[in-house]
Amino acid sequence: MRSILPEDWTLPAVDELNEAFFTSGRILLQSCAGCGTIQHPPEEICHRCQGTEFETRESSGRGTVYSYTVIHHPAHPKLAQSVPYAVVLVSLDDFPDVRITGNVLNRAFDGVSIGLPVRAVWEEIKTKNGAVYRLPQWEVVE
C-alpha cells in the first residue's frame, strides 16, 4: 500500500543494479568489491578503481533531512488528489555522502524541514503482475 501517492503512481524499473535497494526492505548500498567505494545510485563500474564486482553495505537507516520540497501543483492528473505532498532528501547518518529521496509518512506536508532526524521505514507494494517492492520511506524520529 502507498500512503502518500496513488496506488497506480510510477514505480522504479527494477534492474540488476537497483534490485537490492528497492526490494530487500533494507538500505543496501552498492560497494566496490575491489576498493570498498560506496556509490549511490549504483553504477555498472566503480568510479574509483573501475572494478565491476560489487557487494552491498547496509546502512542503519538513520538519517537527517538534507533538503525538501512541497509539491502543490500536480504535474500529472494521477497526482491531483495527492497534492500538497512533501518530498525529502535524506542524508544517511552512517554514510553522509549518500542522499536518498523519499516521503515522510508520519508528518503532514507542512511538517518537514531541513535538519529533522528521520529513520527508514518501508512501503510494501505488490503490483498486479506479482512484483513486490519494498520502497524506502521515512519517519520523523519523535
Partner: peptide, 15 residues
C-alpha cells in the same frame, strides 16, 4: 515505471 536515476526520485512524486 521509471528507470535510471529517475527510479530513485519519480516514485516519490518528483516527476
Amino acid at each position: 515505471l521509471a528507470g535510471g536515476s529517475a527510479a530513485f526520485t519519480a516514485p516519490y512524486g518528483l516527476a
